[in-house]
Design a protein around this nucleic acid. Sequence first.
DNA 1: ATGAAAGCGCTAACAC
DNA 2: GTGTTAGCGCTTTCAT
Lengths: 333, 333
Amino acid sequence: MHKQEVTIYDVAREAKVSMATVSRVVNGNDNVRKETRDRVMEVIKRLHYQPNAVAQGLASKRTTTVGLVVPDLTNLYFAELSKGIDDIALLYKYNIIITSIENRLMKEDQAIQSLLNKQVDGVIYMSNRLPEKVIDAFERTDTPVVLAGTKDNREDLPSVTIDYKKADTEALNLMFNDGKKNLGIVVGDPDAVVNSEYRIPAYKEFIKEHDLGEAHIYTNVMDYSDGYNLYSQLAKDGVDGVIVTRDSSAVGILNSAMDAGKNVPKDLEIVTASATQIASVVRPALTTIKQPLYDMGAVAMRMLTKLMNNEEVEDVHIELPYELVKKQSTLNQ
Amino acid sequence: MHKQEVTIYDVAREAKVSMATVSRVVNGNDNVRKETRDRVMEVIKRLHYQPNAVAQGLASKRTTTVGLVVPDLTNLYFAELSKGIDDIALLYKYNIIITSIENRLMKEDQAIQSLLNKQVDGVIYMSNRLPEKVIDAFERTDTPVVLAGTKDNREDLPSVTIDYKKADTEALNLMFNDGKKNLGIVVGDPDAVVNSEYRIPAYKEFIKEHDLGEAHIYTNVMDYSDGYNLYSQLAKDGVDGVIVTRDSSAVGILNSAMDAGKNVPKDLEIVTASATQIASVVRPALTTIKQPLYDMGAVAMRMLTKLMNNEEVEDVHIELPYELVKKQSTLNQ
DNA sequence: ATGAAAGCGCTAACAC
DNA sequence: GTGTTAGCGCTTTCAT
């Protein structure tokens, strides 16, 4: 399509060396006399030679490219994870191919296959859904995979997360100690492993242990308007404290409650489980389980670099510390 | 690195045809007898053959990959643009390599070069800064480039934008008609073409035409806290209406004003120039110049697909319609 | 409709 | 230290 202006062969000819030597210079191989190296470098500069990464990839079987699988770019939760990944990727000179898969023509396994076909050296998977087909695809390849902000059922795949159970329990406890006895939980996809295996069980255990009666579990609350519309139901159910996994939903609940003339936190306490910017700019500011999203991304990418280099990785299931940040959407007594 | 389990050669041997025929089947070339095609397809299925996109890229000189250059993934403005791009890219089966460049080791021209080395078929550039070096790199290559949400000085490069001058003038006029006579403008990077060539000139013209006295131009206000901290200055300067290009800054100003006991919009009107989610969830909700970000991204990507296929493109400088959405941060009289 | 063969631009033994 | 030579896995003429 576009003119590959200058190839390694042109440089070799002009510098009166072999392609191999140019390749050595380009790749920083030490086995080149300084004099030769300088001559080659000069020609490279003069001819504006730039190596063709596709050819390099085919010959070396390494593309210095990693794939990111993310549900939605416009969800700040994933954007902040991605930023951490991106920074470390840059540090190690990897490019990033990003694939978003929510509400899409493309299914998860197709996304993975597409990435693998591009010969990515590794994959970071952030989607909270992990269908069997994806697992199969991962198992059919040697390409290392790291999960960021999610887990698989069997805990086979390396992952970087927080302790969701502990975090949610702590949040519920905060509201309980504020005197709220009719607690609820609001999640997005109920089948997401994080929800089905950690958050919802943590909630169930909590209300059982504290004898809080009926469970109030609200699922498929995906965005602001879902949250906004949910409030009337929360009111009807007499819920006086909720933990909400998505902060856009939490903000929707907040605004809806206030529009209904209610007082947050007096009438309803809200704790959101992902501390993106949106949770801190609304008033009253939301109490949050602050996940170290940037760090989670960075740690995941760092782990992936090790896996791609066949380096030893001591622990493939890393849990980073979270922080329960008390703001004005809880009484904090 | 990873075992390329099955190659086109394996399929050819197993199906008792040549590699060329397998290639034809894979690429949907019609010149294959149905019988042969079926046999090849069967083998492909059975062997789980997947073409190596790197080898395809080297041989065909098309990678079906486009590069995105974006300042910051966690800025919803860019995220929403990217989403539009991504959806159209998926439709046309392009993968996306994303490169973010703000506050980074990597400079704009290195980012571009890295993308070009990967032999991307096209580039969408969203950064509001467009250094000479980047222009040079673009000129040294045949790879098509489209600017999304930004322009270059000479208007050489194809672009998708809104009419910034008209939009800002309309916003200023709204505030003027509300009786605000001490208007200001708050921007991020003052050297960004959109600011230096359109927004700031539009502002200057407006206050000159309406004889509003001294100009109040605030630059390098990049985020929420910059906006929050700026408010005291706005108050000191007696500004009673501002147009703010970044909505995180706008929200910062809003919260700061309210924390100072001021009334928005009575004491200060705020119009933000990019309508991301954050502008609509705060209370009072912000009046916004609603740019069709998703559409801008989609249109840019669609234009790029045409350029990559050497198709005719009637207009390479597309301006999409915006909408001035009146909310509670202006009086709207 | 199908096959043979020449590359695409580079890396990586291996030889000297 | 440097050159020679096979590939990497695929596409694409050009024959037939």
